[in-house]
Design a protein around this nucleic acid. Structure first.
Lengths: 247, 247
DNA sequence: GTCAATAGTTTGTCCTGACATATTGACGTC
DNA sequence: GACGTCAATATGTCAGGACAAACTATTGAC
């Protein structure tokens, strides 16, 4: 039964429950709260922090939703296996490939200001016709194409250049511009490649492609990126580890 | 502003919030609450049902988590696009479709005892040649095929019959046999349909299929199911919501 | 040793109440 | 028409409290 040092800053604009969740998550990632360990009960934790129990519950539930904690009535709250959640985390593919030593390279196929059609507008929470930046890239790893990435960002958020985008991942550039990505909603699907897509990705006609559509939000809940990504199914899978919330 | 007829049964063992969520989901699926429509505010809804506001909020949040509703502070709660979007949680497709009112049916194509080859053995953490149960099913929803499901279970864990499997989901039957699924490791990918697969799923030649391979573990960490599932990409996507660990 | 009953522990559900924050529309001014 | 202000509206956060349900440990009977 480990008790990490937790504290909350009531003058911060960050909600109390989220401050607690962040610290617990930190403790899990650093190993201070190792896999398999049991948290103190929520009443004790709330008391320790001077918070109400529902607020403490909200913090814990947040991490349960992330799959980092599992709760059992009558037993307690346990840290579950610290899994590699590589492709469904809010990270950029560039960063992931770099971390995996796979030497990613990027070709910027398109970088232009345009206006949002209905679909893009819907996802970014803006009016159709509003200015957006459209970015299209081909990402390669180990000398061969891996993914076709199309992204839309609200105009004016960040200044992107082809040179920057070929050197670093999009999220790194957003971060450098002061944009903090906080949450994302993602949909994973599959489709057959169009001829252009098959050619760009060096796959056969109608090859199956893995798709991911993502809307990423900053800490205020403002949509800052809408992405539509195509991956070669022959080279790419998503690994997802989960824990039941109904155990 | 549509107001579906909602009611709660306080004598039911089903939590109030879940009863409400189910009814709202039903209204969404039947079109009574169409995409784009706005719910009454949570205070009014709670009052209408004689519930507390947090309970009403919990019901709504449940559907927000399912991707059926979107909330905006100061504005309200809106119904979003209605499509099969499964979360990447450790639930069975059967349960999810049932909850979504989509009337799943199952055809058991194969149910037999066999021995584990290298791949199956590896995933189940057993020796090659060990006895396993091989289960192959076609799952339909709303009268058309949705997925081809192949599962392997260690022999002796649970006694399955074709009849049982056509009536209920696999996880329900495991649960009824006292097996509690706790965690899972999943890989999501895509492939082109073989001719047999295309025919079974009523898709065209070489149609893109979404794949998921899963190993599910019980609370002791023992692998209790290895599944290889194929879904029609035209009818099926995965939804994943994430938060950054570096916010 | 086995089993059932009971007590203790912890999470799950639900309630009432209050304040904060974001959004939208109305209105007035320039 | 553009802009600013303000009120109304709706969600978001937080608090304190109570009871229920599930799980584990303990105890006593056999």
């Amino acid at each position: 039964m480990v008790v990490p040092a937790l504290k909350v800053d009531r003058s911060s604009p960050v909600p109390l429950y989220f401050q607690v969740a962040e610290q617990l998550q930190s403790a899990i990632e650093t190993g201070e709260l190792p896999t398999g360990s049991r948290l103190e009960n929520e009443i004790q934790l709330a008391g320790q922090l001077g918070l109400s129990r529902p607020t403490m519950r909200q913090a814990i539930q947040y991490l349960v939703d992330q799959g980092l904690l599992v709760r059992k009535r009558g037993v307690g709250t346990e840290v579950v296996a610290n899994r590699v959640r590589r492709s469904v985390e809010l990270t950029s593919l560039y960063d992931d490939l770099t971390a995996a030593g796979q030497t990613p390279t990027t070709s910027v196929l398109e970088l232009q200001n345009t206006t949002a059609d209905d679909v893009v507008a819907h996802h970014l929470g803006i009016e159709p016709g509003t200015g957006v930046v459209r970015l299209k890239r081909l990402r390669c790893a180990q000398g061969e194409p891996l993914a076709l990435l199309t992204n839309f960002l609200p105009a004016g958020f960040v200044r992107l250049t082809k040179k920057d985008l070929e050197r670093a991942g999009l999220y790194e550039l957003l971060k450098a511009a002061g944009i903090r990505l906080c949450t994302a909603s993602q949909t994973i699907g599959a489709k057959n490649a169009s001829n252009a897509e098959a050619q760009a990705l060096q796959e056969g006609r109608r090859a199956a492609l893995l798709t991911m559509t993502r809307v990423a939000y900053d800490e205020r809940g403002v949509a800052v990126e809408f992405g539509h990504h195509l991956y070669r199914a022959s080279r790419y899978t998503f690994a997802v580890s989960v824990a039941t919330t109904r155990g």
